[in-house]
Design a protein around this nucleic acid. Structure first.
Lengths: 146, 146
DNA sequence: CCACTTTTCCCCACTTTCACCCACCAGGAC
DNA sequence: GTCCTGGTGGGTGAAAGTGGGGAAAAGTGG
C-alpha cells in the first residue's frame, strides 16, 4: 500500500526519485516497473499489475461510447511503462511533465493501490480546495455508507 | 501494444519518424508495414495484421447501408500501406497531411492496438477539451463500473 | 513519344536525447 | 566521530530523431 505525502525534486533531466517507502511496495510485488499516466490535474503511477487490471476493465466497455473514447484517448493512451534506474528514479517524459505542470518541486501522494505525482504548488492549491469542501465531503461519505 | 505520447516533427519532405518504442512493437509482429488512414480529427496507423482484421469485419457489413458506404469511402478507402525507410520513418502523402492538418509538430498517441497521428496544436486543443470534461468523464466511468 | 517537372526513395551526416554509471551531500543510527 | 541510507547532480557513449543531397521513378504537358 502506498501511503503518505513526500516532496521530492524533479532534476534538470526530468528524473524523479521514487521514495524508498514506495519502492519497497514495488519490491514486495516482485516487479519494479511502473506505469505512469496523465490524469486531469496530476500524473498517476501504478504498479504494472494494477494497471493491467484497469486496462482489462476498460477494454470491456463499449468502444464506441464517446466518453469511453475520450477516456481512452486521454487517460489510457498516456500510460507508459517505466523502469527505475539504479538510484530508484524514473525519467518522466516532457509531454507528461507539461501536462501535469511539473516544475521543480514535486509532491508524491500515496493512494493505497497507486500514487499521484503533483506539481507542489498545484497540490497545495488543490489541497486547500478540498479542505474548504471537507464538510460537504463528509456528508457524501456518510451517504456512501462510511 | 502501442502506448504513450510522443512528439516528433514532420520534416519538409513530409516524413515522420516512428518512435523506436512503436517500431519495436512492429518488429515483434515480424512485419514492419503500416496502414495509415484518415479519421475525423487525426490519422490512424495500424499494423497490417490489425488493419486486415478490421477490413474483414467491415466486409461483412451490408454493402448498401449508406452509413457503411460512407465509412468505407472515407475511412477504409484512404487506408494505404507504407513501409519504413532505413531511419524508421514513413512518408505521409500530402493528401493525408492536409486532411489531418499536419504542420510542423506532430503528436503520436498510442492506442494499444494502433496509434494516432495528430497535429500537435490540434491535439493540445482536444486534450484540453477532454481535460475540462474530466470530472464528468470520471463519473461516467464510475457508472460504467470503473 | 519525348522532354520536363515533381515526387519518392535511399544514403550519409549532424544534433539531441536517453540509459547507464559514478560521485556527492545531508541526516539518522551506532 | 564513522557508517549507512536516501536523495540529488553530472559525465559519457549509444541510440533516436532530424535534415539534406542525389538518383530513380512517376506524373505532366507538349
Amino acid at each position: 500500500m502506498f501511503t503518505g505525502w513526500v516532496t521530492n525534486t524533479l532534476d534538470a533531466k526530468g528524473r524523479l526519485a521514487i521514495p524508498a517507502r514506495f519502492r519497497e511496495v514495488l519490491a514486495q510485488k516482485g516487479d519494479e516497473r511502473l506505469v505512469v499516466t496523465a490524469s486531469d490535474k496530476c500524473l498517476v503511477a501504478y504498479p504494472i499489475e494494477e494497471w493491467n487490471a484497469l486496462i482489462e476493465k476498460v477494454a470491456k466497455l463499449s468502444q464506441f461510447n464517446p466518453k469511453v473514447q475520450d477516456f481512452r484517448r486521454y487517460f489510457v493512451s498516456s500510460g507508459t511503462e517505466y523502469s527505475l534506474d539504479r538510484q530508484g528514479r524514473i525519467l518522466i517524459p516532457s509531454s507528461l511533465r507539461e501536462t501535469a505542470g511539473l516544475t521543480g518541486q514535486v509532491q508524491l501522494v500515496g493512494m493505497q493501490s497507486n500514487f499521484e505525482i503533483w506539481d507542489k504548488d498545484r497540490w497545495l492549491q488543490d489541497r486547500e480546495r478540498i479542505r474548504q469542501d471537507f464538510g460537504d465531503l463528509s456528508s457524501v461519505m456518510a451517504e456512501l455508507g462510511l
